[in-house]
Amino acid sequence: MLKPGDPAPDFDLASASARRAGRTRLGDIRTDLVVLFFYPHDFSFVCPTEVTGFDHALADFKAEQTAVLGASLDSVESHLRWAEELGGIGYPLLADEGGKLARAFGVLDEKEHVALRATFVLDQKRVVAYALASPFNVGRSIAETLRVVRAIRTEHLCPADWEPGVAFGPDKLKF
């Protein structure tokens, strides 16, 4: 699994976004940060709480100059039907058929042939700033991901459970 400091591999994948099929290339995304989250399957009862959770918080991520991308090993047709089932998803769901992207990020479960429930935040240089993997049966916290995005964007030393408005350390201090 890639860790903070590792460069993210570039990708150009078919994707479903806003009820339409298209392509998404990492190099074309111009936001400060990118949240890329992997999930095991379309058409599951755990994943939608995350997929829709990120969609509900999309305006907050956009306000932080952060793009959100979801990825699983399902086809783009599956993503389109799945997004429709969920009432529409406003960010791209990447069709990582074959699992090349998940493998590149080190989050492919080869035995089950699914992506782990993993979240990466990529910085402006598309280097991994944050990486987290959850168990298959535990959905991740969208609020925590947003908190981390906000903390990274401060470029300050942020204490545990830091929230916007709480004092933080001096600029560029790493530890």
Binding site: H41, D42, F43, S44, F45, V46, T49, S78, R81, N137
Partner: peptide, 27 residues
């Protein structure tokens, strides 16, 4: 947490040969 039971049932149906999407719709 009904989704835990739903997911468990979905997996059982998928093991019996139902496609994931079809199993999801049945559940």
């Amino acid at each position: 947490r009904p989704y835990i039971v739903q997911e468990g049932l979905l997996r059982e149906l998928a093991k019996e040969g139902l496609g994931r999407e079809a199993a999801y719709r049945v559940v």
